[in-house]
Simulated scan of single mutants.
Amino acid sequence: MQQARRKLGPGRGYEYFNQLNDSQLTDAYHYTLFPNFAVSLWVDGFHFLRARPHPTDPEQCIFDNWWYAPAPEGVTSMVFTTDGFVARDAVVEHEMFMLGEQSMGMTIDQDLAIFSAQQQGMRSRAYKGAYLSGQESRTQRLHELIDDYIEGRRPKKVGTNET
């Protein structure tokens, strides 16, 4: 597949294929930029993924999924999206729906199923807290400091008993 994309892509308007390494022609690169925002890069497009707080229910969120695809000049073939193909010049309407009402594509649907199960697990009587990696611990500490400032508490200085 990598060789075919490298050979056929430029002739189909995707000149940038020659600037990519082999794995970039077939693999997805996923980056979490902040706990609630991520980017997934594919050879034929990219996702912006964001979870926002629900305006009235703290037990829910609004999950935004944007898919952007290149539109090389002169190319008329269908554009791949997360849940199928659309005409290249199609106007894609903004949609809002509840989880399970329709598909967002196999991968996103699987991720969302995991999110729901994780949220339910956090309400289990057996749940005693998360095990965090070093980077995650730093993010937790950042939020603790933000909470301290919001509540008017002055955080302790690291390595001292001073507040």
Results as ranks from 00 to 15, higher is better:
158 V>K: 07
92 V>D: 01
126 A>D: 10
131 Y>E: 09
97 F>W: 06
95 E>T: 10
10 P>F: 10
95 E>I: 06
27 D>F: 14
70 P>E: 00
105 G>I: 03
108 I>L: 08
112 L>P: 01
100 G>M: 02
123 R>V: 03
24 Q>A: 14
83 D>E: 01
17 F>N: 08
136 E>C: 07
96 M>Y: 07
14 Y>C: 11
108 I>H: 05
3 Q>L: 15
49 L>M: 05
30 H>Y: 12
118 Q>L: 14
154 R>Q: 11
11 G>V: 10
128 K>W: 05
136 E>Y: 05
105 G>Q: 03
89 D>G: 02
98 M>T: 15
21 N>E: 11
28 A>C: 14
160 T>S: 11
117 A>R: 06
56 T>R: 04
6 R>D: 08
142 L>V: 13
16 Y>M: 08
43 V>G: 02
44 D>L: 02
62 I>C: 03
29 Y>S: 09
144 E>C: 11
6 R>Y: 14
18 N>T: 15
25 L>T: 05
46 F>E: 01
138 R>S: 13
55 P>A: 00
106 M>L: 15
140 Q>T: 07
82 T>D: 05
49 L>D: 00
63 F>M: 02
22 D>Q: 12
139 T>G: 06
73 E>A: 04
7 K>A: 15
152 G>L: 07
138 R>K: 15
143 H>L: 14
65 N>M: 06
93 E>Y: 02
88 R>W: 00
111 D>R: 15
115 F>K: 05
38 A>E: 03
156 K>Q: 09
7 K>C: 15
28 A>L: 12
110 Q>M: 15
128 K>V: 07
20 L>V: 08
74 G>D: 01
74 G>Q: 01
123 R>G: 07
42 W>Y: 12
117 A>Q: 06
81 T>Y: 00
154 R>W: 09
116 S>A: 15
92 V>P: 02
90 A>G: 00
131 Y>N: 08
116 S>Q: 13
5 R>A: 15
158 V>T: 10
160 T>W: 08
25 L>G: 06
69 A>N: 00
79 V>H: 00
109 D>A: 04
147 D>C: 11
72 P>D: 00
55 P>T: 01
62 I>T: 03
12 R>G: 14
43 V>I: 07
42 W>V: 04
103 S>V: 03
5 R>P: 08
12 R>H: 12
119 Q>S: 11
144 E>L: 14
17 F>D: 06
146 I>M: 07
21 N>T: 14
148 D>Q: 14
35 P>S: 06
159 G>F: 13
163 T>F: 13
7 K>H: 13
50 R>G: 01
38 A>I: 01
135 Q>Y: 11
119 Q>H: 08
126 A>W: 12
50 R>Y: 02
23 S>T: 13
8 L>I: 13
95 E>L: 13
136 E>V: 05
83 D>C: 02
29 Y>L: 12
142 L>M: 14
35 P>F: 04
6 R>H: 12
17 F>V: 15
92 V>I: 10
135 Q>D: 09
26 T>R: 15
16 Y>S: 10
55 P>Q: 00
129 G>M: 05
73 E>R: 03
63 F>N: 00
20 L>Q: 09
93 E>D: 08
135 Q>L: 12
161 N>L: 14
66 W>D: 02
158 V>I: 13
122 M>I: 01
74 G>Y: 00
56 T>C: 02
133 S>K: 04
31 Y>G: 05
9 G>Q: 10
64 D>E: 02
109 D>C: 05
